[in-house]
Simulated scan of single mutants.
Amino acid sequence: MALGLLRRQRSRNASGAAQGLSVPLPPGAGRYGCEVVDPLGQPMGGAEITVTALDSHRVVAQGTTDPYGLFMATLPPGSYSVMAVAEGLTPARNNVDVAAGAVLPPVRIALLPARQLELPPSGTWLFDPPHTAIRFIAKHVGMAHVHGRFTRFRGGIRIAPDMADSQVSVRIDASSITTGNRTRDNHLRSADFLDVERFPHIDFNSTRFVYRGGSRWTLNGTLTMHGTSRSVGLDTTYLGTVNGGYEQELRCAALAKTELHREDFTLNWRSMLARGIAVVGPTVQLELDVQAMYRTAETPTPPE
């Protein structure tokens, strides 16, 4: 059905599309659609689409294109960043403004062949918090997904001459968790969940970068949360290096994702359910949208 709707939108202007759309928009909402194609111009099914609000860094829509390369989302009015990612191809990111009552014609996103991006210079890079977001998505038990983020953290990347020996470290203030609901946030900080009084920090320390081709890497490391450490692998897309910012600093960017199982960190959701506590589900999708600033050419000595 979504395919038919988007095809009708192609043949009309924005006003005509709104009239021909059989699925009504919620009051005050707008609709965004895109068509992702591969380097030969063919529809790209299974491409990952992430829509992020530019003001809050919150992921508001996420999914994959259908077999015809189409993706559609109903969104509140605002400005968004849309990222399209597919294995072996260069990620594409663009911005879009959504207005209330508007049905935007599908945006054509062409993914280009992946190329080996020039890696960042060796040295120490520090996360830039205003341009970095640590987000999570969890399914609320019996309800829709819960979107949240951590607002206080620090981290850095030490780029070694051999990228495989590079290191990433992140420390998150566990009490900075926010989902937009004060009651739920207080519960997540309590001894029932993160227990921030006893375990104030969530730490990640990498062990190795593994190259997957194009701009894709796997970042292996150890995540420590709630007093428990587990090995995790982050699917990472390197987005390149640019000069930018107020002081024209050299910056690099990357997007990293992983899935966590709460029981691996002794967060027992079943016992909470037994006591009638409303909690998020047993798996959590974690995403780090990182921008880091170059600070010094010093690099660690790789272990022998």
Rank of each mutant, 00 (worst) to 15 (best):
S206M: 08
L239E: 13
Y68R: 13
E298R: 12
T224Q: 04
G123T: 05
F204N: 09
A47S: 13
A138W: 02
G4Y: 06
V103D: 04
D192T: 00
S190Q: 07
L112E: 15
E287G: 14
I137K: 14
M1N: 08
V103P: 02
R58N: 14
V82D: 06
G142L: 07
R12I: 00
M1Q: 10
L188M: 14
T224P: 00
G221W: 10
S169A: 13
G214F: 10
S79W: 00
G20V: 10
R8G: 08
T266D: 15
A164V: 10
L188N: 02
L255T: 12
I137Y: 06
D173T: 09
R31E: 10
L288Y: 02
A191G: 08
L3M: 06
D192N: 07
P76V: 11
P282G: 03
W217D: 03
A138C: 06
Y68D: 15
D192V: 01
F193S: 04
E287M: 15
V82E: 04
D203V: 15
T301V: 14
H187Y: 06
G156C: 05
L267D: 01
I177D: 03
P91F: 01
G227H: 09
L126R: 13
P300K: 04
L21Q: 13
V290L: 10
R8P: 00
P76C: 07
A274Q: 11
